[in-house]
Each structure stands twice: as C-alpha cells, then as structure tokens.
Simulated scan of single mutants.
Amino acid sequence: MTVQVEVSEQTVVDLMNAGRLDEAERLLRGLLAASTAPLHLVRLLALAVRGQGRIAEALDLQLQLVDALPGDFSSRFDLSESLLLLGDFERGWREYQWRYRMPHTSAIERKVQRPRWNGAPMPGQTLLIHDEQGFGDTLQFLRMVPAAKARSGARVVLDVMPELLSLAQRMEGIDAVTEKGTLPPAFDKHCELMSLPQVTKLTLDDLPGPVPYLTPDPKHVEIWRKRLANLPRPLVALVWAGRPTHGNDANRSMSLSDFAPLAGLGLTFLAVQKGPKAAEALTPPAGLRVEALDSHINGFEDTAAILSIADLLVSVDSSPVHLAGALGRPAWVLLPFVPDWRWLLERTDSPWYPSLRLFRQRSRGDWATVIGELGTALAALRG
C-alpha cells in the first residue's frame, strides 16, 4: 500500500505541474479516503483547490492541516497567503512570519545579532530595517518605513539592495540608507521590511497611506523626455513577463505575441520589459508599434523616468507595477485567475495603489478575455 501511495503522489505532483488541477484533486480525494494516506497530501489538495479559484475551501483545508501539524511551516505559509488574499490581514500577517522557517527560504534569512523590533517605542536608539525577497516586495513595502520611524521614535537606517538604493535615498522619513552587502552603522534593533505590517498591525483601512512615496530622478526624466519626444502619443509602457525564476511565473507571464489583437489602436508601446523576454520587442506582432527600450534601460531609475513620462503602464504582475504605484503613476495590471495575495480577489482597484486598475482572468489561463477587455479600455483612452 505504501508503494502505491508514493506512486500516486508523484502522479498528483505531475498533474499539478501540468496545470491539470481538477484531475489532481480527484486523485487526491481518492487517496485521502484511505486511512493510511499521509496527512501532507492535504496540503497538496489545498493547493489544487486553491489553484482552481476556490480560496475559501482551500483555507478550510489549510486550517485543518495547521491544527493537526502546527510545526509544518510550509503549510503555515500557504495559510498566510490564503488569509492575505482574502483580506484577513490580522491572521495573515501573523502566519506570514513563518516564511523563513521553510527549507528554500531559510538560506536568504538575514542572521542579525540584535533583537527584532516588536513595535514598541525606542527613542534615542537606532532601528535597522532591511529589505528581503524581490524588487516588487521592496518597492511595495518601502511605504512602511516612515510609519515605522514615527511609531518607534528611533533613528531609522534602511538597508536596501543596490538596484533600489538611489530611489530609497530620495524618500522622506528615513535617516540613513545603506547598500545591502555593506556594513550598516551600529543599531539597537532590527526588522525585516515585510515584517513591518505585522509589527505595526497594518489593516486594509490603513491603506494606501501617503502616495506617492517615491520620486523619479529629474536628470533621468530629462534624458528620457528628449529621447521619447518625437514618438506619437499616447505612450503606453508595456511589460509582458515577470522574473522567470518566480514560483508562479508560468501563470502570471505572457508573450508579446499575446498582444497582437491590440494592433491598429494607434498607440505607441514602450517596451520596458527586461530579462530573456525583452528580445521579443525586436519582432513585435504585425501592426503593433513597439519601441524596444531594453538596451537603454540600465536600472530602476530609467524605468521610473519612463513611467513618469508615459501616459500609462500596462503590465503583468511584476516589479514595474509596484514602481508605478509607488510613483503615483497610472498602471493597468493583468492578473492570472488566482493572483498573488497582494491583489486580493474580484476587485478592479488596489488598496495599495490608487493609480492602479486591475484586469483579471475569468478562468485559468484565459489571457484572451483579458486582452479583449484591455483593448476596449485602451481604445477609450485613445479617444
């Protein structure tokens, strides 16, 4: 019987990797009907159900699993993402703290030999806030640093990855900004950037807070204003794929060819796409006017300048979306059927960024409907 379960479990994993979630669910329910089935199959069932958009049902399964196995940190992280996706920030942030107890994330945890800040006032002391995870995560949660300073009464030092250093240095409410990988000044307590919501007990009602909280560099803006001056408007910055190593990239990313139905709208698309997919801008779909800017974009300062000039950003779920939102620039975001937790469910706006509009898949993998709705909205923009 054990051998049969192992074989069937691998079949389940293969089905899920192939996106055949309904088949995986049926097989899992059959396995779980047997009393000898391992309990961790409930986690796979929750993931299969969640991937089909039944978030509340997945949440029930995750709660059961966490009650039975409170030390299963992967299940606790799954639970946090479902809670946050449903807007339950109070419980969601509490469970999100377990993100560094999983094997694949423990390696990136900062080992800091100082106490973690618990939200209490600490006047006369220094608080180190350090970034974590991806660019989008950092851009989104930089908003929390001035609030942490106000709450703590401390001197705040922000330690941030070099790609975002100059943007962070122009923020208000931060005493010093250091580059990740260098030795920060002496500090008394520390906090991860994405632990600030839990420490400060952030709720949906607290959002969006002061926006914009990032500003473009005027020198970069002037350079790009001259470079883009002769292009016909409207200028629509475009990103069609995220980072390939992201765990959900297969669901969230597209190809430039998917935008072929938008040809003929009379728009100029500014390809601010980076990474392996950027080369697609060199051979765009027929009739789609695309300016390939990848070779001229040397970092987020260039992207910020372009977004400050463009009329709109259209993008899949990626870091430029967060940059646009943090700058207070308009962006239309194309989301998969089950989005990342920060986009919540059903709504067409974002509590994090007032300047964003969300376009959601109505079924798994259905980008065609999203592009159709996007085309209608862009035609209205064109007038």
Rank of each mutant, 00 (worst) to 15 (best):
V211Y: 11
P184E: 05
E172M: 02
T203R: 15
H190D: 04
F187T: 01
N230V: 07
W240C: 08
P185D: 06
L193N: 01
P208D: 12
I174G: 00
W240M: 11
L207Y: 12
H220Y: 07
L202Q: 10
G181K: 03
R225V: 04
P212A: 10
K201E: 13
V239R: 07
V236C: 07
F187G: 01
V211W: 12
K219Q: 15
G181W: 03
S195Q: 07
P197E: 03
P185G: 05
Y213F: 13
P197N: 07
L228W: 13
L235C: 13
L202W: 11
R233V: 08
D217K: 11
P232R: 10
A237W: 06
A237L: 12
V177G: 00
R227Y: 14
H190C: 06
A229R: 14
L165D: 01
Y213M: 07
P184R: 06
S195Y: 03
Y213A: 03
P208F: 15
D188A: 07
E179K: 03
L196M: 08
G209D: 12
E179Q: 11
L183N: 10
F187A: 02
R225E: 13
T203W: 10
A229F: 07
L228H: 11
W224M: 06
R170G: 03
D217Y: 10
A237S: 13
S166H: 05
K201I: 09
R233Q: 14
W224S: 06
L231T: 04
T178E: 08
R170Q: 03
P185R: 05
M194A: 09
L183G: 02
D188P: 06
E172W: 02
L207S: 14
G209W: 14
V239S: 08
H220W: 03
L167K: 00
K189H: 15
D175S: 06
S166V: 09
M194G: 02
H220I: 04
V236H: 01
K219F: 04
V199M: 10
D175K: 02
A237K: 08
I223H: 15
W240V: 10
D175G: 04
Q198G: 12
A241D: 12
L228K: 13
E222S: 15
Q169C: 14
R225A: 10
M194Y: 01
E192G: 09
V236M: 05
K189W: 13
P232N: 11
L196Q: 04
D217M: 12
W240S: 04
M194F: 04
K226R: 15
K189G: 11
K226Q: 15
T203Q: 14
G209N: 12
L167Y: 00
K226W: 10
P234K: 04
K201G: 14
P184L: 09
A241H: 12
L165T: 01
L204C: 04
K219P: 03
V239T: 15
V177E: 00
P210H: 15
W224P: 06
M194W: 01
P184Y: 06
L231Y: 11
A168D: 00
Q198Y: 15
A229I: 07
D175I: 05
P234S: 08
V239E: 06
P184I: 08
G173P: 00
L228Q: 13
D205F: 09
E179S: 09
M194D: 02
R170V: 09
L235Y: 13
E172I: 02
A186F: 06
W240P: 07
